[in-house]
């Protein structure tokens, strides 16, 4: 049960949040220009990193804002949270 520091609300229990998976996968601006392979890459392929991963979280039972998190998936340590649109912290 993580304690998550929502960038808008502060520290809250994990049960208030939902995870939206890998972050910084930008929806293609021109999907019709993509090959099936490229589109599949966007739709389904994930790094699924064991280690430090950038991911999206939503304070679903709180302010309902989406934000990004840097978390080590090998030990669940949260290294940083930052707002959407902000530059990811350099590790």
């Amino acid at each position: 049960m993580f304690l998550i520091n929502c960038p808008y609300c502060g520290e809250r229990d994990q049960s208030e949040f939902s995870c939206g998976g890998e972050a910084h996968i930008v929806r293609p601006k021109q999907p019709t220009e993509l090959s099936d392979d490229q589109w599949a890459e966007y739709l389904f392929m994930r790094k699924n990193i064991k280690g430090v991963q950038f991911e999206r979280w939503n304070h679903a039972h709180g302010c309902r804002k989406w934000f990004n998190m840097v978390r080590d998936t090998s030990n669940d340590k949260i290294h940083a949270v930052y707002k959407m649109g902000e530059k990811p912290p350099v590790e």
Partner: peptide, 13 residues
């Protein structure tokens, strides 16, 4: 659990 993790420890919820 609804997030990626390799820890073999899930949440109590």
């Amino acid at each position: 659990d609804a997030y990626v993790s390799y820890t073999q420890r899930g949440s109590h919820d």
